[in-house]
Design a protein around this nucleic acid. Structure first.
Length: 470
DNA sequence: GTAGGGTTAG
């Protein structure tokens, strides 16, 4: 009797776990298809029919809400989870943390961590890795470093991701030398770099102009036994384009093709923008159509690349049409999209419309409109409206070396060398550099205008600024 | 449930 009862119980348990498993598969596939409301409905129906959800069901749902709609959306599900009598676990909170890191919202991430501890859920190395990533993305490398030290000093075993996140974060924060030092230190302590690690480092070193070191790491990657993947190829290709070695970059592109690597939007955009930059528009167009044919679901970066190509090809109306279409399709444009368009309008000589578009950008409130303003300054100077450019220049709160260079260049064109010289000096005070050609133009301009004393003074200031740069 | 590559201006 007892034996029968026991088997019955076992069968019941097995059936119920099987039904939960089915439910989870169903919820996961709906979440993947971004049909979150349907997934929730399935959970409700499931409960009615005896398919009981478990922590995995809710974790899947929360992860999807976090990915598609942000932390708050994910967090709301925790209440429904509790109502169903299921307690969140460390994975639940790690999804929420990841979402906070993506934004990034550092204070939110710290609150979540605190809440975990309060609820008796011990954060694991994933939680801390994510927190580190969040610190880096919030522009706080020191905080990230502190978390890193905590991981090492606490009873947590750092994972390869811990090191990769740290190396990547240091590169992105402008400390590639520290990243390389950490990499070497870890190697000395027996850390075997993963392919990701090499990719991170090659990219970081290349972007900071350390081509020799990047090449050395690429060579080490070859000797490590890892097979470079499409990401490695795209990274190295981009490195070549950045340093003006276009032919070498295109060779890597051919090699990637002949070796049968699958092209994704990252690879296509790298090639299309390089071809666009050097005016090989026919090839850029061919590549673009190949991407459109092959690529499922182009994102805003891909569209920006296409819009840029249309602008450079003189097809401004097509560019604006494309913008309309993508926004109708629910993809949000960003500051790149509109800076590209402002630049296109300036290059086409339509300064009025460029300025209108700049106003529109301001109204939409993008993260930054610095590049668009720089294009405007440059465009106005090129069309002889230097005074107007200067007015805009003076109103700009944020300026960079492009802003100063364009303005100085424009002032030289109308032989206003004294003002140009003043601008160079304030540029130096802000720690920015302007193009050497524009520096020379101002010095020789001052001289030719008989302002020899001022020319000498500017030259010596520029000289000491260069001397102090390292 | 965490980490890597792509888009703009002088």
């Amino acid at each position: 009797m007892i034996h029968t009862w026991h088997s019955f119980n076992l069968v019941q348990r097995m059936t119920s776990s099987l039904s939960t498993c089915l439910l989870n598969i169903c919820v996961a596939s709906l979440c993947k298809a971004q049909q979150l409301e349907k997934a929730e409905a399935v959970i409700v129906d499931g409960i009615r029919l005896g398919y009981l959800p478990d922590v995995v069901t809710y974790n899947t749902l929360i992860a999807a809400y976090c990915r598609f709609d942000g932390v708050d959306a994910g967090y709301k599900v925790i209440h429904r989870m509790s109502e169903a009598g299921i307690k969140p676990c460390v994975i639940t909170y790690n999804s929420l943390l990841a979402s906070a890191a993506r934004q990034p919202q550092l204070s939110r991430a710290l609150d979540l961590l605190e809440e975990m501890r309060r609820r008796g859920i011990t954060p694991d190395v994933w939680s801390y890795n994510t927190l580190m990533q969040c610190c880096f993305k919030s522009g706080k490398p020191d905080e990230a470093n502190r978390v890193f030290r905590d991981i090492i000093l606490a009873n947590l075993t750092p994972s390869p991701t811990t090191f990769n996140t740290m190396i990547n974060g240091l590169c992105k924060a402008g400390y590639p030398a520290n990243a390389l030092r950490l990499f070497r230190n870890l190697q000395r302590h027996g850390f075997l770099p993963q392919l990701v690690t090499y990719n991170i480092l090659i990219n970081g070193l290349c972007k900071s102009g350390r081509l020799g070191q990047a090449r050395r790491i690429l060579q080490e990657l070859g000797e490590s036994g890892h097979i470079p993947n499409a990401i490695t190829y795209t990274t190295v290709m981009k490195c070549c384009f950045r340093s003006g070695k276009f032919e070498q970059g295109f060779e890597i592109y051919s090699e990637m093709r002949s070796k049968g690597y699958t092209f994704d939007a990252f690879a296509y955009c790298t090639v299309i923008s390089a071809l666009t930059k050097i005016g090989r528009l026919k090839e850029a167009n061919d590549c673009m159509w190949e991407m459109v044919r092959n690529g499922s679901g182009l994102d805003i970066v891909s569209y920006n690349t296409l819009i840029n190509l249309y602008c450079k090809d003189g097809k401004l109306e097509t560019a604006f049409q494309l913008l309309n279409e993508i926004e109708k399709g629910g993809i949000e444009s960003d500051e790149y999209t509109h800076s590209i368009l402002v630049n296109g309008l300036c290059k086409a000589g339509d300064l009025d419309r460029a300025q209108q578009h700049l106003k529109y950008m301001k109204m939409r409130g993008f993260q930054s409109d610095l590049v668009a303003y720089n294009c405007m300054i440059h465009g106005l100077c090129e069309t002889g409206q230097v005074d107007y450019a200067m007015k805009i220049f003076e109103k700009m709160e944020l300026k960079d070396s492009f802003t100063y260079s364009s303005m100085v260049h424009g002032l030289c064109k109308v032989r206003t060398f004294r003002v140009a010289s003043k601008l160079i000096l304030s540029c130096l005070r802000e720690g920015l550099k302007i193009l050497a050609a524009d520096q020379r133009a101002v010095i020789s301009g001052l001289r030719s205008a008989g302002l020899k004393q001022e020319a000498r003074k500017l030259r010596s200031k520029l000289w000491s600024a260069r001397a102090l740069a390292f």
